[in-house]
Amino acid sequence: MSEPVVLAEPEWRAREDAHVARMRKWTVPHAERRSRGEKHPVLDFLFTYYSHRPSHVERWQPGFGVVLAGESAKRFLERRGYLETEDGVTVDPAGFTPARERTARFVSSLLAATASRPARLNCFGLHEWAMVYRQPHDEVRHAQLPLRLGGPGTDEVVESLEVRCGHFDAFRFFTPEAVPRNTLSPARETQLEFEQPGCLHANMDLFKWAYKLGPFVPAELLGDCFELAADIRELDMRASPYDLSPLGYPAVPIETPAGRAEYARAQGAFARRAAPLRARLIECSDTLLSGCTVAGRLCDN
């Protein structure tokens, strides 16, 4: 196990301030909307589908193997999972419980399997269309928004294009009529076999895997994954059947060849941006599995 990195108080406090300021770009408007009882069909997803609370998104953490020097570091002891050493305050390796070890193993395996595959860029965001296929409009998830092409036009797009969704957490929201139209049959049990680096949802989920590893992941990496998820979410909804123009989101009309080409270009750019974040999460998981001590034993025993 490598020696811990000791951060002087001015250094870690500057990093903390930078992270908080960065995340408040999303958390403050979200809190303001909630106070008004206002829903946002694009951005709420980051705080409702994902279970990391806004206050925790803002919260800075050093990650595993980092010691915070200085008197003010003692406030981290008020959080669960930190301990004081002779050099300062650090994440407690004992918090890497057997349950979190299982999570780290799954994250490492899933992300490595995903990274091993070429990016597939021909799904064109049809998962959102399949979620409203042949559905009465008052029953769709964002019933407050009109469908750009109306119900019949939306159904026609689903019927005219090949649906190729391999992400189970998108596929499970397909309408019953849309399920047999999918050329793939992803399931929770086969998640490692299906996820691929071009998938928007697999790349958004890097944020989920970052927060699932708890305080052992540095806040800067979690923030990078959150920012990626926020940017991908915009494309996800701009390419959806909903009309988001009143909210300032121009459509990516995947029902046209030009729209599909635009979508594939953006999807490819997100895949390239996600790749180093995926690699960092794999490295973080593997470091935890090889270096953490739980109740007097090495986690990888």
Rank of each mutant, 00 (worst) to 15 (best):
1 M>G: 14
2 S>Q: 13
2 S>W: 13
4 P>S: 12
8 A>Q: 13
13 R>V: 15
13 R>Y: 08
17 D>P: 00
19 H>L: 12
21 A>D: 07
21 A>G: 03
22 R>W: 06
24 R>N: 01
24 R>V: 01
26 W>L: 06
26 W>P: 01
27 T>D: 06
29 P>E: 07
39 K>I: 05
41 P>Q: 04
42 V>Y: 05
43 L>A: 05
46 L>S: 07
48 T>M: 12
51 S>Y: 12
55 S>F: 08
58 E>N: 00
59 R>K: 07
61 Q>Y: 01
61 Q>R: 15
61 Q>H: 03
62 P>Y: 07
62 P>Q: 02
62 P>T: 04
63 G>D: 03
64 F>W: 12
65 G>F: 05
73 A>M: 02
76 F>K: 05
76 F>Q: 09
78 E>I: 04
78 E>H: 03
78 E>D: 12
80 R>G: 08
81 G>F: 10
81 G>H: 09
82 Y>G: 01
84 E>C: 06
85 T>N: 03
90 T>H: 01
90 T>A: 12
91 V>P: 00
91 V>R: 00
92 D>N: 12
97 T>P: 01
97 T>N: 00
100 R>D: 00
103 T>L: 01
104 A>E: 00
106 F>E: 09
108 S>P: 11
108 S>K: 06
109 S>K: 11
110 L>Y: 10
113 A>C: 11
116 S>I: 10
119 A>C: 04
123 C>N: 09
124 F>G: 04
124 F>R: 07
130 A>W: 04
132 V>F: 03
135 Q>F: 10
135 Q>L: 14
135 Q>E: 15
136 P>G: 06
140 V>I: 15
147 L>D: 10
151 G>T: 09
153 G>P: 05
153 G>Q: 05
154 T>R: 09
156 E>H: 13
157 V>A: 02
158 V>Y: 02
158 V>E: 05
159 E>I: 13
160 S>A: 15
162 E>T: 15
164 R>N: 15
165 C>M: 10
168 F>Q: 10
169 D>N: 14
172 R>Y: 09
172 R>A: 08
172 R>P: 02
173 F>W: 14
173 F>E: 05
174 F>G: 03
175 T>Y: 08
176 P>Y: 01
178 A>Q: 00
178 A>C: 01
178 A>G: 00
185 S>V: 11
186 P>Q: 02
194 F>L: 11
195 E>A: 12
201 H>Q: 11
201 H>V: 11
202 A>V: 15
202 A>Y: 13
208 K>W: 15
209 W>K: 08
209 W>G: 10
211 Y>C: 01
211 Y>H: 11
212 K>R: 14
215 P>F: 08
218 P>G: 03
218 P>R: 08
220 E>V: 11
221 L>N: 09
222 L>C: 07
232 I>D: 06
236 D>T: 14
236 D>H: 07
238 R>H: 06
239 A>N: 00
242 Y>G: 04
243 D>T: 03
244 L>C: 08
249 Y>G: 12
250 P>V: 10
251 A>L: 14
252 V>D: 07
255 E>A: 12
257 P>N: 08
258 A>L: 15
259 G>M: 07
262 E>A: 15
262 E>Y: 04
263 Y>K: 04
268 G>H: 09
272 R>F: 00
272 R>I: 01
276 P>S: 06
277 L>A: 09
280 R>Y: 11
281 L>D: 12
290 S>I: 02
291 G>L: 04
291 G>Y: 02
298 L>T: 07
